[in-house]
Design a binder for these strands. Structure first.
Lengths: 236, 236
DNA sequence: GTCTATAACGAGATAGAC
DNA sequence: GTCTATCTCGTTATAGAC
């Protein structure tokens, strides 16, 4: 009986994985907007009503794919980071940025799913938040370490930004000063500007040798958040 | 006879505009992937085959919408720029960035069309290039002026980037040195990272008071491309 | 010449009866 | 779970109105 239950659980996991794999293939072919439970079922030789035992709606399947994508990206970034965990913060920052870029280039359709245009009619539930936050939290960790080691330069914030900056700091990293969290969040968004332009083809005929270009830009982003070599202290 | 031709030409322009307006409405509702000639025709009280007198295919209609969006954005940026044409390059830079952001927030679906996920099965023809380049060329102009006035700081490029940097410089702005064109292109991409995160909702619960945040970030981008106040010369 | 309407194709999705 | 009747779609051929 426990073996039967185990077998059933195993089967359920396998079918769930097969559904998501097929859904990812259709994502790549037709885009998230056209993802259809029926088409997935047909391709798997199932009937559409059977899919509802695994995903109660198309939106739930989409949510699962989105969470998987964020986790896959987060894992790629975290494992790249752990390989250089003892290096200078600036090098760790660049390693994480490069890992995010590599993942995006290897999974362009999943990248489009999480950082591209919103899917019409779909609203991401709160469930997606923890997975979505992984890369951001990693970048915060790196800057936090540099800040402890004083290897971080602070920036002057405009007066109109001080209230919001304090709120962001309290929300995201209470141990980091507002003058650090603002450029950090900006760099986070800018990183995905660089990655998105490459993945979505905006760099075609503009930037050709993209790896060194990206490394240079990621280094500038590190500088923007105050990460300087090796722990040489802060400079304005 | 010439009046007849004029009336026909006018009618053609009006119908073309009506088709594009309706297509834009459907774009906002269902996304570019689901844009359908038949649905547009139905909503306009025409028959689908009649649309082919105006757009030879669905992709041609999409292309027209894309070019219009780029031109609308380009116009917004250029008119914002001409209002501050005599200010310091740094202020002109920030004005153009702010205009691009405002346009994107006011036209989120058209922004998604040109800077979001690619439309599955659609490849943008070369026709779109001139319109797509307008904001970029404006940013180049601003940096060029600052460079003439020596108000631009050069950055050290990594050795691995020198060849590509020279190619980019020759291609995009032969009168600007590679050490300027690289951060300029990077800042261009990063600008759309900031805008995209706001338009696509990635800043929800992260950045709330977004206007001052954006201005701060745009100012940092200006700094990154070497624009400093007023023409106080170059610093590393 | 310029346009619109009718009809049809082949492909795919969908709803409901069974 | 299967089958069928009825939708949608992009696109083309054709015929006729202005």
């Amino acid at each position: 009986m426990s073996t039967a239950r185990g077998a059933r659980a195993r089967a359920r996991i396998e079918v769930t994985a097969a559904i998501k794999d097929e859904a990812r293939r259709q994502l790549a072919a037709d885009g998230a907007a056209k993802l259809s439970l029926r088409a997935v079922a047909r391709e798997l030789g199932m009937v559409s009503s059977a899919l509802y035992r695994y995903f109660p709606s198309r939106d739930d399947l989409l949510t699962a794919l989105i969470i998987d994508a964020y986790n896959s990206l987060g894992e790629a970034a975290e494992s790249a980071h752990s390989a250089v965990a003892d290096d200078a913060p600036r090098d760790r920052w660049i390693a994480v940025c490069a890992a995010a870029r590599r993942w995006a280039l290897e999974h362009p359709h999943e990248y489009a799913l999480i950082y591209g245009s919103p899917v019409p009619g779909y609203v991401a539930p709160q469930e997606t938040v923890p997975a979505a936050a992984r890369v951001g939290l990693l970048l915060i960790d790196i800057v936090r370490d540099a800040h402890r080691g004083k290897g971080v330069a602070r920036i002057k914030l405009s007066a109109e930004l001080t209230v919001e900056a304090r709120r962001m700091s309290a929300d995201l990293a209470p141990d980091l000063p507002p003058e650090v969290i603002v450029p950090l969040v900006a760099a986070w968004a800018q990183l995905y500007g660089l990655i998105g332009f490459e993945v979505f083809g905006q760099f075609n005929r503009v930037v050709e040798d993209r790896e060194p270009f990206f490394r240079q830009a990621a280094g500038r982003l590190a500088h923007e958040v105050g990460l300087v070599y090796p722990e040489q202290g802060a400079t304005a």
